[in-house]
């Protein structure tokens, strides 16, 4: 797995972690570019189904991050989120889903360095775990390019351009 570059998404709240990640950038700290950051109003808004959707779209791991307890912009969003993650992690654990691939953290707007570390650690861990092929196996197989010769010869019809 030497050259495996994990796909990593991050669900972060607008008020703390997003600002924190910004700070990491403006202070020119380096961290892996594998991460795709998605901004949410608050961790309280991160529905667990959105986590599932992230894995559906093929990520190998996910960072979920927001304001530290007591710092939530909406007072209690992260407290609700916290309870939700405890239960959600248990569902996934019981079902044998690899919860090592979900990284829950709190990163404040001032913790630029922590954000860099969180991402670096996550990428390192995911490189160790490899691609999440167990989960990808249950997704319905799609037609992928390049089409291999066998499929192309037998079944593919080229249709007129749709534009």
């Amino acid at each position: 797995m030497e050259d495996f570059e994990p796909k990593l998404a991050a669900f972060v709240c607008n008020w703390c972690t997003y600002a924190g990640a910004d700070l990491t950038g403006t202070s020119r700290m380096k961290y892996p570019s594998n991460v795709r950051i998605l901004r949410f109003p608050c961790t309280g808004r991160i529905d667990f189904m959105l986590v599932m959707k992230a894995f559906d779209s093929g990520v190998d791991g996910l960072i979920v991050s927001g304001c530290h307890p007591n710092d939530c912009h909406y007072t209690s969003g992260n407290f609700h989120a916290q309870r939700r993650w405890v239960v959600f992690k248990e569902v996934l654990d019981i079902m044998g889903f690899d919860t090592r691939r979900i990284f829950f953290t709190w990163v404040s707007a001032a913790e630029g360095a922590k954000w860099a570390k969180v991402v670096t650690d996550a990428v390192e861990e995911l490189k160790k775990l490899g691609p999440y092929s167990e989960f990808k196996k249950i997704l319905l197989k799609k037609l992928q390019f390049p089409l291999d010769n066998k499929t192309a010869d037998r079944e593919i019809k080229t249709e007129p351009v749709i534009s």
């Binding site: 407290f79 609700h80 916290q82 829950f104």
Partner: peptide, 13 residues
Amino acid sequence: NFFQPDEKVDFIK
């Protein structure tokens, strides 16, 4: 629907 303000969850780092 509830929470306790002093709740700590070990896996949230």
